[in-house]
Simulated assay, not measured.
Amino acid sequence: MATETAGKNVTDILRTAGLRPTRQRVSLAELLYSKGDRHISAELLHEEAVAASVPVSLATVYNTLHQFTEAGLLREVAIDGNKTYFDTNVSEHHHFFIEGENRVIDIPGDGVGIGRLPEAPAGMEVVRVDVVVRIRERQ
């Protein structure tokens, strides 16, 4: 039986997003959303799945996270092009990346102001602006 997520059953959430609620998708969704809003890498979610006895490969975790992102259930946060986190909070907001800890935390929605954006090339439109502010402890 699927757990409740923000008052909704994860099976219903998947169906509403246009995704078939397979056993693996439901199990991964339960792991993702059972701890509230958070930023997670595919590797960490895979570790949590293994610890919870969910039989799933790392490749399936990656595929599922990308499917959830395409369906609007997650937001992808790319750091340096080689590290990707998935955010369960899909609202408009930006992020701090804590160097040395490899941790991502939210900046409140009004915490960043964008004064001017370039015009998109012909036939294109700006969909979203993602700001990642890198921080570290003072030396």
Rank of each mutant, 00 (worst) to 15 (best):
residue 105 I to K: 13
residue 75 R to I: 01
residue 65 L to C: 03
residue 49 A to L: 04
residue 60 T to Q: 12
residue 76 E to S: 11
residue 7 G to C: 08
residue 40 I to W: 09
residue 10 V to Q: 08
residue 79 I to Y: 06
residue 135 I to R: 09
residue 53 S to Y: 11
residue 49 A to N: 04
residue 24 Q to Y: 13
residue 8 K to L: 10
residue 48 E to H: 08
residue 39 H to E: 12
residue 33 Y to K: 01
residue 110 D to M: 12
residue 116 R to T: 11
residue 7 G to F: 04
residue 137 E to Q: 11
residue 127 V to T: 10
residue 67 Q to L: 13
residue 36 G to Q: 09
residue 4 E to W: 07
residue 74 L to R: 06
residue 91 S to C: 00
residue 39 H to I: 00
residue 73 L to V: 10
residue 5 T to H: 09
residue 20 R to A: 14
residue 36 G to C: 01
residue 117 L to I: 14
residue 58 L to I: 11
residue 12 D to C: 01
residue 27 S to W: 04
residue 1 M to E: 14
residue 16 T to F: 07
residue 52 A to R: 06
residue 73 L to P: 02
residue 28 L to F: 04
residue 78 A to T: 06
residue 16 T to Y: 06
residue 23 R to Q: 12
residue 21 P to F: 08
residue 118 P to H: 08
residue 88 T to M: 09
residue 114 I to R: 14
residue 75 R to V: 01
residue 23 R to G: 08
residue 22 T to C: 04
residue 108 P to D: 10
residue 10 V to Y: 11
residue 87 D to E: 12
residue 90 V to C: 08
residue 32 L to P: 02
residue 36 G to Y: 07
residue 60 T to M: 14
residue 112 V to E: 12
residue 28 L to H: 02
residue 69 T to M: 09
residue 50 V to C: 01
residue 34 S to E: 11
residue 72 G to F: 15
residue 98 I to C: 02
residue 109 G to T: 15
residue 92 E to Y: 03
residue 71 A to M: 05
residue 85 Y to N: 03
residue 73 L to F: 11
residue 12 D to L: 10
residue 25 R to I: 05
residue 15 R to Y: 01
residue 2 A to G: 10
residue 123 G to C: 09
residue 54 V to Q: 06
residue 10 V to H: 11
residue 27 S to Q: 12
residue 52 A to Q: 05
residue 121 P to Q: 06
residue 112 V to Q: 14
residue 86 F to V: 07
residue 68 F to C: 01
residue 104 V to T: 04
residue 91 S to Y: 05
residue 65 L to N: 05
residue 42 A to M: 03
residue 11 T to A: 13
residue 87 D to I: 03
residue 118 P to K: 06
residue 106 D to V: 00
residue 102 N to W: 03
residue 31 L to R: 02
residue 48 E to I: 02
